[in-house]
Design a protein around this nucleic acid. Structure first.
Length: 890
RNA sequence: GCGUGGAUAGCUCAGUGGUAGAGCGGCUCGUUUACACCGAGUUGGUCGGGGGUUCGAAUCCCUCUCCGCGUACCA
């Protein structure tokens, strides 16, 4: 076996192994291999935006998926991780339009026209799209790239059309003139889910109008949007409001536009809250959802006073026409002031809906759009409520349930060019509609609906449309429903809920069995990572600086289930350091030489050997359980602790006693134990650290132990470690008390080191210790103690009686003395012992106080009582010893 | 409003009824048979406030404060 290089070079290693895995088709899933003994495991990737670049959110999300997939492979499952990208309608069209504008090719999309622009976007997609796919490879993602899908692939588009036509024929998709959320920048309708509410500081403007039928009677109206007054077609009061009820049916004169102060009615409507504002509401059915509803109830005229881009139109009047809605607001106030209608303005905070994408206030707007009444709602609600589909963390189930019980029809049409065009044609002369996946036979007489579908109307089919639906393909048969879905809670409604409904509607079954919701990545201050804040580090830079393994480990160790993640580069550094530690521990083993094929001889196991085997068992159990419960950070922490604090810090150091000795058999046995532990550890780590574990697996010769079928000798397909069962533990002679024996020893070492440091002796200075053992110690155990204490020599003397004032510490193995030739400072030792005495006395008092309390002793469980009694005895014994020691000082 | 998560060492978090923990940071020492991306030692906490249940509360209950998220909103 060639020697491992002194330093680990992740960039070269990661590149090399990823290519090898690809060449060997290690990630490719074959439905034909699925069987009773080889169950399927599948995940569909949440398809990133085709224009996207890797963010830390993607790193988190995809590392989790990769861990799940890699572990499933090691458990002997046939694994499909299906990758792909999303065409992301608005976002992509924006990116490309912007690029073209920057390059001076166009000023507006109309310069190119629909066909040309779509062509340009495709070109752009082929050239620059899917960068993120290459970036995912750098991260080590073990996706089956041979199955990469795009939501606008021809067959995928066909699925989208099929579904549209089907839902149309079922009467669930309909076209209607409704109030929608209109984005004045994108010039498109958007869904309720794409609107984010933001608190706004603004003003509440009051103005008064005279009741036409009762001159001298004025109504005061409060509004935040005076620019929409020209669109008012009524004012509304609550019919139960004693102040105004009698005015219902009468009229007022609308103050704007100045040149058209029409008379509009006063209507009574329960919607009006008479405690809010003045209790009089102006009703603008064209520009407010609630007002639209009032308008419908009272059959009011609808007057649209705005252009689609948010500027005022001519109907708004000469003073306002052409102004942007916010400029028009100011102008409208001025006009009211001029006419004397203005009363006052008051600062007012309210919530305004913003277009998530363009970050501008949306404009409620009446327009013709396509809507979907959600299908399979009941099954989809029940499956989560019943727990048949599990959410992790499960509190999201409640959020889901809440949304499912308040479903509003989904506005699925978008006034964009990039996307799946709605498969509906209108007859040019007759009132006919053709909805089908194929155009009408006489296309010259028909015109296709210009709109495209909301991107999510394609993503919601992702779990099955990527596997060949509507054919009943082998892949669908083998891998649907998928096993796990890993995504952020921010798209629970956008995507998760809709996939569940589509799954039931078209596959008759749930699309995935478990949903893991990741946390949201924030910076150290807790701010959300975003490009505009510039607080989002580039994962690729982190990879080149620290390695992909380091990034994966760092982010997973700090990502507890259900919590947001405060990202700190320190965590990645920790990951890098850990990889280095792993590398060096492997090198240490290799430097001892010897074959790694040595069998462990149970009769030669030392206390330390047994201890590490027991600790390994615990680690395997902890990691396995944690992963089964999706507690990735716990799994990572367990591994970290086991390998660094237990294997490296104690076991390897203790082994040096054997390795320095001259018993060849014992040495070989120690190496066999190391190999056993390392072989297991590498496999436990592989899902987290795929690259370095593969490199060491091969570099240390573990690979050839494994059967070379399926995936060859890669650690990827090595079996997932199992804890030793009872028989194996018997075989190795492992007993639970072995752990205590070793722990007593390590505690003794700790205490001895503390003593040394208390007297300012450098850790590397070899000093003499004397142990007055409480029980007899084997020669080997003494040697281990000597090495770990860095003692030279370590005298074991049951009759030890060192000079007065010799620093002494009580250990589980007996009294340990640190003779300081000629340097004894009696007062210093007295001070140290006195301090110790105070501590022990305080602890003893605490326990005794409880034990002397009748209330305690009579009510507490027997086990707790015994624990306390033992503790009291321990402290008492320590106290007695300390007293003796202090007395000896004179 | 309603729902939901959180507040434990300087920082990030673990700890769900029985002796308050880890990692990082800080400080001290250090070229020991791998590893300074390291080792040894050490310093850090009346567990957000108040009340209750209990022999016993970081842990269970109530309440308040603050931070976050979701959702619904009144012009």
């Amino acid at each position: 076996m060639p020697e491992l290089p002194k330093t680990y070079t992740p960039a070269e290693v990661e590149e090399r192994w990823y290519q090898k895995w690809l060449d060997d088709k290690c990630f490719e899933a074959d439905p034909a291999r699925v069987s009773e003994t080889r169950p399927a495991y599948s995940i569909v990737i949440p398809p990133p935006n085709v224009t996207g670049i890797l963010t830390l959110g993607h790193v988190l999300n995809n590392t989790i998926q990769d861990i799940l997939c890699r572990r499933a492979r090691m458990l002997g499952k046939e694994v499909l991780w299906l990758p792909g990208t999303d065409h992301a309608g608005i976002a992509t069209q924006n990116v490309v339009e912007k690029t073209l504008r920057k390059q001076g090719e166009i000023r507006h999309r109309n310069d190119l026209g629909r066909e040309k622009l779509v062509e340009k976007i495709w070109e752009w997609k082929e050239k620059h799209g899917g960068i993120i796919i290459q970036q995912l490879k750098k991260l080590g993602a073990s996706c089956d790239w041979s199955r990469e899908r795009f939501t606008m692939d021809a067959d995928y588009s066909r699925c989208v059309q099929d579904v549209f036509v089907d839902l149309y024929k079922k009467g669930l998709i309909y076209r209607g003139r409704r109030m929608v959320n209109w984005c004045p920048v994108a010039l498109s309708a958007i869904s309720d889910e794409e609107v984010v509410m933001k608190p706004q500081k603004g003003f509440m403007y009051h103005f008064k109008v005279e009741v036409v039928e009762e001159p001298g009677t004025f109504l005061e109206i409060a509004t935040t949007r005076p620019e929409t007054i020209p669109g008012d077609t009524a004012v509304a009061v609550n019919p139960n409001d004693p102040r105004y009820a009698k005015l219902i049916g009468k009229h007022i004169r609308r103050p704007l536009p100045v040149e058209n102060q029409a008379e509009i009615p006063i209507v009574g409507d329960d919607h009006v809250d008479f405690e809010f504002g003045t209790g009089v509401l102006k009703v603008t059915p064209a520009h407010d959802k609630a007002d639209f509803a009032i308008g419908e109830r009272h059959n009011l005229e609808i007057i649209d006073v705005m252009h689609p881009n948010g500027t005022m139109n001519l109907i708004a009047g000469n003073d306002l026409a052409g102004l942007d809605r916010f400029a028009a607001r100011k102008k409208a106030v001025e006009l009211l002031q001029e006419s004397g209608a203005f009363v006052k303005e008051e600062p007012h905070q309210n919530n305004v809906g913003y277009s998530e994408r363009a970050d501008v206030p949306i404009e409620p707007r009446l327009s013709d759009q396509w809507f979907l009444k959600y299908p399979s709602v009941k099954e989809s609600t029940d499956v989560v409520a019943d727990g048949a589909m599990r959410f992790y963390p499960d509190r999201w189930a409640k959020v889901y349930d809440h949304w499912m019980n308040g479903l509003q029809d989904w506005c699925i049409s978008r006034q964009l060019w990039w996307g799946h065009r709605i498969p509906v044609w209108y007859h040019k002369t007759e009132d006919q509609v053709h909805c089908d996946v194929t155009p009408p036979s006489d296309p010259e007489n028909w015109e296709q609906d210009p709109d495209v579908l909301d991107t999510w109307f394609s993503s919601w089919l992702w779990p099955f449309a990527t596997m060949g639906w509507p054919e009943k393909t082998d892949s669908l048969k083998a891998f649907y429903p998928t096993t796990d879905l890993v995504t952020g809670p921010d798209i629970i409604f956008f995507w998760v809920a809709r996939m569940i409904m589509a799954g039931y509607e078209y596959m008759g079954e749930l699309p995935f069995k478990n949903v893991y919701f990741t946390g949201i990545i924030r910076d150290k201050q807790g701010k959300k990572m975003s490009k505009s804040l510039g607080n989002s580090p580039d994962p690729l830079e982190l990879i080149s600086k620290y390695s992909a393994d380091a990034l994966r480990f760092g982010i997973m160790r700090g990502a507890p289930l259900g919590q947001d993640i405060l990202f700190d580069e320190k965590n990645v550094e920790l990951g890098r350091n850990f990889c280095t530690k792993l590398w060096n521990a492997a090198r240490f083993r290799q430097m001892q030489g010897g074959s790694h094929e040595g069998e462990i001889d149970p009769t030669l196991l030392t206390t330390d050997d047994k201890w590490i085997l027991l600790r390994l068992n615990t680690a395997i159990e902890e990691v396995t359980t944690a992963l089964e419960e999706y507690r990735f950070s716990d799994a990572a922490s367990s591994l970290y602790r086991f390998f660094w604090s237990e294997y490296c810090d104690w076991y390897v150091e203790a082994c040096k006693a054997t390795l320095q000795g001259d018993d060849a058999k014992r040495q070989a046995n120690a190496l066999a134990v190391m190999d056993f532990v390392l072989g297991h550890t590498l496999r436990l780590f592989h899902p987290f650290l795929p690259f370095i574990t593969e490199e060491l697996w091969h570099g240390m010769g573990f690979s050839k132990d494994m059967p070379a079928d399926q995936g060859g000798d890669s650690i990827m397909t090595a079996p997932w470690p199992k804890p030793l069962d009872a028989d194996e533990q018997t075989h190795f002679g492992l007993l639970p008390e072995d752990e205590k024996t070793a722990n007593d020893r390590y505690e003794t070492v700790n205490l001895g080191r503390g003593l040394k440091s208390a007297f300012n002796l450098p850790g590397n200075k070899r000093v003499r210790y004397i142990l007055k053992p409480a029980n007899e110690l084997a020669e080997h155990d003494v040697e281990v103690l000597r090495i770990l204490l860095n003692a030279e020599p370590l005298d074991v003397d049951p009759a030890a009686a060192p000079a007065k004032g010799t620093p002494t510490v009580l250990t589980p193995l007996g009294e340990l003395f640190l003779p300081l030739d000629g340097l004894i400072d009696v007062e210093a030792e007295r001070a140290r012992l006195t301090k110790e005495m105070e501590k022990v006395t305080a602890e003893l008092h605490k326990v005794l106080a409880k034990l002397n309390d009748e209330n305690f002793t009579s009510k507490v469980p027997e086990k707790v009582l015994q624990d306390h009694k033992h503790r009291a005895a321990d402290w008492a014994e320590k106290k007695a010893k300390l007293k003796e020691m202090l007395a000896a000082l004179g």
